[in-house]
Write a protein that binds this DNA or RNA. Structure first.
Lengths: 191, 191
DNA sequence: GATAATTAAATGAACGTTCATTCATTTTAT
DNA sequence: ATAAAATGAATGAACGTTCATTTAATTATC
């Protein structure tokens, strides 16, 4: 039964979301997952491996969320769609799920193996950038710059909303989204 | 001698930067700070208080860094100056200092007391926004939006550079900075 | 100015607790 | 009847914290 593996991962996600990684103990995890402590070690060799597996698992879910409803519309429509998904990734998810901020602080996230997996997962995004550039819509900057200018504001705003420091306002956020799009597009004076 | 207090805080900062908060133990901290374990408790009531104090201390240093060289130039020049400081905050600092990412994940950062301190510390930034709006240069959006669009890309890029995933390129980054400025300014079609 | 008395700072061994992990045993599924 | 899955008490290491004691600095006395 690999389903217990998932039960344990979900419990770990919940506990980290609630109390932070530095308060995660294996016994607490066992209790939360309604499993004996020893059972965890049937599915994960040790705590470090558990966290490593959780990282991959969460990334999979995050990517699924970000690319949900992603279709072949116009590039700008694709951008807007992704932008609000990145925003909701922080603001909208269940409280027992890790948000992007929490995900990005899991240790081992900088390993080569993980970065390769991440790169592969977010490929559709790079495809969109390339498509936009071929159509002369998006400025000719490296992907890292385009992502930072275009989507980091959405991630940050999602975090602010989830922490209760900002209220979700659809029309205002649409204005912000459009400004992010303009900031990576060729529509303004391109030097 | 309050200087030992500082020695302990710097050692804590270094350890967290190196190994993460979840690996910080008081005995390791004592060893790193070249101090007996008991000495720590002369300056901090417990571990939680230590981290809380570290948070304030780091914020002070971060603010000092961000606003270093901040003068009353044109608003756009002020923006550019701050933008590169935010960038360098992640990319340029000594490896024994916490970067913005690490700072922002210290627990207790969401407390009211801390938020008030943070708000006060970053007031010059809000002043700049207001000034820009009065001069008709910056669009009429709330500060949270302006900050996210304008500066979050710089913070994120700084982080990427510090992790070695991106090389520092002055001329490219200046282009990116200008695009961030444009994204919050009224210079393009303001609907 | 030297010596004694007092206060403050620093120490690190010891404490009780919690931690991650193991494994002999029991329960469940085949 | 056999194998796989799950258990949870036991273990030793590591944890945060305490405190009796030592060391250093400051003040008082002559």
């Amino acid at each position: 039964m690999a389903y217990k593996r998932n039960v344990i991962l979900r419990a770990a996600e919940q506990l980290i979301a609630d109390e932070g990684l530095h308060n995660l103990s294996m016994q607490k995890l066992a209790t939360t997952a309604q499993v004996a402590a020893g059972t965890i070690y049937r599915y994960f060799t040790d705590k470090e491996a558990l966290i490593s597996e959780l990282r991959k698992d969460v990334l999979k879910n995050v990517a699924e969320f970000v690319f949900s409803g992603f279709t072949q519309e116009s590039v700008e429509a694709q951008f807007t769609h992704l932008w609000f998904n990145f925003l909701k990734l922080g603001s909208n998810r269940n409280s027992n799920q890790l948000n992007y901020q929490q995900y990005s602080q899991l240790p081992g996230i900088e390993s080569d193996e993980h970065r390769a997996f991440e790169q592969n997962t977010f490929e559709p995004l790079l495809t969109m950038f390339k498509q936009g550039q071929q159509q002369g819509l998006i400025t000719d900057l490296e992907d890292e710059y385009l992502f930072s200018i275009g989507f980091e504001p959405a991630i940050a705003l999602g975090h602010r909303i989830s922490e209760g420091h900002l209220e979700y306002n659809d029309s205002e956020l649409l204005v912000v989204c459009k400004r992010c799009w303009s900031a990576i597009s060729t529509s303004f004076s391109d030097s």
